Simulated scan of single mutants.
Amino acid sequence: MVIVELHARAVELAAREVDGVRPDQLDLPTPCVGWTLRRLLEHCVGQHRGFAAAARGAGPDLALFADAPFGDDPAGAFRRTALELTGAFRETAAAARPLWLPEVRDGGPFPFAQAVGFHLLDTLVHGWDVAVSLGSPDGLVAAVDGDDELAAALLTVAAAVPSTPEARAPGRAFGPGAEPADGDGRFARALALLGRDPAWKP
């Protein structure tokens, strides 16, 4: 299934950003208000585990998506759990089993391809969060913008995220959307749609 392979490409791009995180950088601020880089990565690792469990048939158990501490090895934890997740998605692709995602709207179940798209978006946006927190987002942005299929998938999912005040309230995953600037690339346009400032700096 195409979306599964696009997701795997997104995960690898994000993992390359996480590979560059040093233990002494884990207290850096991120675009996620109030979250340090450590908290952001603990969230990502927890999401890997939760989506993998959902792909393997787990019900709507919010505890499966809990943030996961990783000590001083963020890259190792990110890659190990990402490998588990991509494997679970590939195993489930043929059956296209719907996934329960208790953190999303009513929890589902969501069609398999849609659920994978949710995590593709989360992966690339949080990969950007990591990169921009480290002061070097240009490589990731260029890689996504240079991959027509991946950039199109990201924009499609970003455009489908509800933009109601309730969905974009404080504490939600995404803030109020903004109009992309003229000349912005596709990654920057997706970030703006999701309430991220493509020009954010620590």
Score class of each variant (00 low, 15 high):
70 F>L: 03
138 D>R: 14
108 G>L: 07
131 A>E: 01
196 R>E: 10
96 A>W: 02
112 F>M: 08
39 R>G: 04
43 H>D: 09
2 V>F: 03
105 R>F: 13
61 D>I: 02
161 V>K: 13
180 P>D: 13
101 L>R: 11
39 R>H: 09
180 P>N: 12
20 G>Q: 14
121 L>R: 05
119 H>K: 12
180 P>R: 10
80 R>P: 00
72 D>W: 00
98 P>L: 11
189 R>H: 09
45 V>H: 05
54 A>T: 10
54 A>L: 02
88 A>F: 03
110 F>G: 04
42 E>D: 11
174 F>M: 11
66 A>T: 10
126 H>G: 08
132 V>T: 15
134 L>H: 00
24 D>W: 00
120 L>H: 00
96 A>C: 04
92 T>M: 09
20 G>H: 08
32 C>P: 00
46 G>I: 02
175 G>C: 07
191 L>Q: 07
50 G>M: 07
3 I>G: 01
72 D>A: 10
35 W>Y: 11
12 E>T: 14
1 M>P: 15
114 Q>E: 14
164 T>R: 12
132 V>C: 01
64 L>A: 15
122 D>G: 04
8 A>T: 09
196 R>V: 03
184 D>R: 07
76 G>V: 06
4 V>Y: 02
37 L>C: 01
172 R>C: 12
179 E>I: 08
110 F>Y: 12
115 A>I: 08
98 P>C: 14
12 E>R: 15
89 F>S: 02
189 R>A: 13
51 F>H: 07
13 L>S: 12
161 V>L: 13
50 G>Q: 09
153 A>K: 04
63 A>V: 09
17 E>I: 00
179 E>D: 15
132 V>A: 06
13 L>Y: 07
90 R>D: 12
32 C>V: 04
96 A>M: 01
85 L>H: 06
63 A>E: 12
21 V>F: 02
181 A>D: 15
182 D>Y: 07
200 W>F: 05
91 E>S: 12
128 W>T: 01
85 L>M: 07
141 V>I: 10
161 V>R: 13
71 G>P: 05
195 G>D: 01
170 P>R: 14
193 L>Q: 14
104 V>P: 02
29 P>D: 03
145 D>I: 10
24 D>I: 00
73 D>F: 02
110 F>H: 09
184 D>Y: 04
95 A>Y: 00
2 V>W: 04
92 T>H: 06
7 H>T: 11
26 L>M: 08
66 A>Y: 11
31 P>N: 08
16 R>P: 13
7 H>A: 12
114 Q>P: 06
82 A>T: 06
116 V>P: 01
165 P>L: 11
95 A>Q: 14
73 D>H: 11
14 A>W: 01
121 L>E: 03
64 L>V: 13
146 G>Q: 09
85 L>A: 01
24 D>E: 13
55 A>E: 10
63 A>T: 10
58 A>S: 15
33 V>E: 15
48 H>K: 03
179 E>C: 14
2 V>Q: 14
45 V>Y: 08
61 D>R: 13
196 R>N: 03
108 G>V: 06
172 R>I: 08
140 L>D: 01
19 D>V: 04
45 V>E: 08
59 G>I: 07
121 L>V: 00
98 P>T: 09
185 G>F: 07
128 W>D: 03
110 F>T: 04
